[in-house]
Simulated scan of single mutants.
Amino acid sequence: MLFCQMCSEDKVKELVSKCLQARDMAYCPYSRFPVGAAILSADGAIITGCNVENASYGLTVCAERTAIQRAVVEGHRQFTAIAVTCDIKDRFVGPCGACRQVLMEFGSEWVVYLTKPDGSYKETSLSDLLPLAFSPEHLGKN
């Protein structure tokens, strides 16, 4: 198990539940592939997001990026965990490469909960999902 100071068993269950709820709000008329995400901020807030598709496919926004953008708008800049889910039942699915890079902007040591529709989850880390990542540190930012 990875270490997450804010991630008590109850908090993980809440995070997983919120990401499942967010998936139900997805706007995905083209792919019919709903995705939900829930981010846990360092101050204990949970911010959700879902994928929002567009007829111009390149303008589609993933659930993880929707959640991070909402979190930033709400004033959050430090995060400890994210739960991500989709409708695939037989295996765990992680964020796409673009989302991994966007999450990396806010640190590499996030705990990531890959969640199935039944609420079961697998715990990993952003640094494991995006090894040797380009980060703000490469630009002299800490």
Rank of each mutant, 00 (worst) to 15 (best):
L2A: 09
F3D: 04
Q5M: 09
Q5D: 09
Q5E: 11
M6G: 13
M6S: 14
M6D: 13
C7E: 01
S8R: 08
S8P: 00
E9I: 13
D10V: 15
K11C: 08
V12Y: 09
E14H: 06
E14A: 07
L15I: 08
V16P: 05
K18D: 07
C19G: 01
L20M: 02
L20T: 06
Q21K: 11
Q21C: 08
Q21Y: 09
A22R: 07
A22W: 09
R23C: 08
D24N: 04
M25Q: 09
A26F: 05
A26I: 12
A26S: 12
Y27L: 15
Y27P: 05
C28I: 04
Y30R: 01
Y30N: 04
S31C: 05
A37Y: 02
A42G: 03
A42H: 11
G44S: 08
G44L: 04
A45G: 06
I46F: 09
I47L: 10
G49D: 14
N51K: 07
V52Q: 10
V52K: 10
E53G: 02
N54R: 09
N54F: 05
Y57W: 09
T60N: 06
T60L: 13
T66L: 05
T66F: 05
A67W: 06
Q69G: 10
R70I: 13
R70H: 12
V72P: 05
V73S: 11
G75A: 07
G75R: 10
H76R: 09
H76Y: 15
R77L: 04
Q78W: 15
A83V: 14
V84R: 00
V84F: 05
T85P: 01
C86W: 01
D87G: 10
I88V: 15
I88P: 05
D90C: 10
D90K: 07
D90H: 10
R91V: 07
R91Q: 04
R91Y: 07
R91L: 08
F92P: 00
G94N: 01
C96G: 03
G97K: 12
C99A: 07
C99L: 02
R100A: 09
V102T: 14
E105Y: 08
F106K: 00
E109L: 04
W110S: 00
V111P: 00
V112G: 00
V112P: 01
Y113H: 02
L114N: 10
T115R: 07
T115E: 04
D118T: 13
G119I: 12
S120T: 14
Y121V: 10
E123Q: 12
E123F: 10
S125N: 11
S125L: 12
L126A: 03
S127Q: 12
D128F: 13
L129I: 14
L129H: 05
P131N: 04
L132K: 05
L139Q: 06
G140V: 05
G140P: 00
G140I: 04
G140C: 03
N142T: 07
